[in-house]
Design a protein around this nucleic acid. Sequence first.
DNA 1: ATCGGCTCGCGCAA
DNA 2: TGCGCGAAGCCGAT
Length: 465
Amino acid sequence: MQTTIPRTRIQGLNSLRIRNGSYVMYWMQQSQRLEYNHALEFAIHKANKLGQKLLVVFGLSAHYPEANLRHYTFMLQGLKETQSALSDRGIKMVIQRGCPSVIALILGADASLIVCDRGYLKHQKAWRNEVSLKAHCAVVQVESDVIVPVEIVSDKAEYAARTIRSKIKKNMDSSLVRFRHGRLKKDSLNLNVNSLDLTDIDLLLKDLNIDRSVPAVSPFLKGGTTSAKKSLKKFIRNGLPRYGRNRNQPQTDDTSQMSLYLHFGQISPLHIALQIKNADDQLQKEKETFLEELIVRRELSINFVHYNQAYDSFDCLPDWAKKTLAEHRADKREPIYTREQLENAKTHDDYWNASMKEMKYTGFMHGYMRMYWGKKILEWSDSPENAFRTALAINNKYFIDGRDPNSYAGVAWLFGLHDRAWNERPIFGKIRYMSASGLERKCDIHAYLEKVEKRIRFFQKNRTI
DNA sequence: ATCGGCTCGCGCAA
DNA sequence: TGCGCGAAGCCGAT
């Protein structure tokens, strides 16, 4: 049990001191939860030490890059729960409408100290940079979204899972520790700061001028820590015992779905990892396989977006991949589908269409099908650059967990990132290929088609938003 | 059903 | 400098 936050998670973002302001402010943005939140714990600790109140602030932008009704609904469900959970602890949380960095600076003007959590995408870094440059007090960033902080693992973009694995494992035991949740001494509920009212999320969503082109998946998937923990429990009971066998079987539902909640910081990877470690001792192998995905692969994605500035474009790919795709640029593509045809699931390939529908109507797709889905976009586009753009755009539009570091690494993987060369063939060159016959050979793809059809019928019948 | 070849480059051993 | 091996494969030979 750890009582203080490890130094390796804490970074001063400017050189200013703690001022004598009205409160300590935790600018919450990435880690949208109360539990296992290192940034929040650090802020509570500092507030107690200074004898001050703690104000938690969230800036809600109506124009978050690529976000639509589906994402906002899921996020606001989680924020509503977090606000009330904090309130139960005597901590005031306000949500204000506007660009997150601007909100942080406005409310931070009265703060003694601004604590923020960490995000690795370009716009998330830019927001924190702006706040650290313009704030009048110390700005401290606390990592609470990974098991091993990125800089501790490596100081460069890693080449593949195998090169990052040992570096993560070296630091894992010292990072996989519980910590005590602190208590705020000075109740801050009476702080007089305005907040958006989250009582009626639908009403608030109508008020915000957001992109409404993609419907929410509520009430089938609900955002928030309670949902996340319920899914985790269910996974440990039902999915984990079969994880080794079924993780690549898209007709089953033996996945954890943790990526949805992790994306919005509604659950901590540390919390998940500890729960998994504590599960049945008979499941050593399954646990290892799951932790490999949760920690090594997820944190490889974060390493990628942190150190590779081109993570959202074709340029991010390793040279051998760009070279081999260029050599096959003139290969005949037949058929070629437009983005519209793809989004409408109007291809000749029923397996592919089913995966597209799963994504479009349920906001989720089984991991194994995510690979097949993307590989075919490369095969059916007029150029690899356009394929990259299309795959990423559709990914981010429909997946609840789109726009995550995992999204960028996942899309780039389709084009060779973190992978190796394979037998050369048309269009793909030496990039790994996947085929419909592979699906037939390796899983029960017809059961998957049925699963998707059934789920979509259920969704359409019961949709409320 | 199972196996080997395909093919690249990092990281480590020497 | 050489060598082993890898984020989830394909394909043809046996």
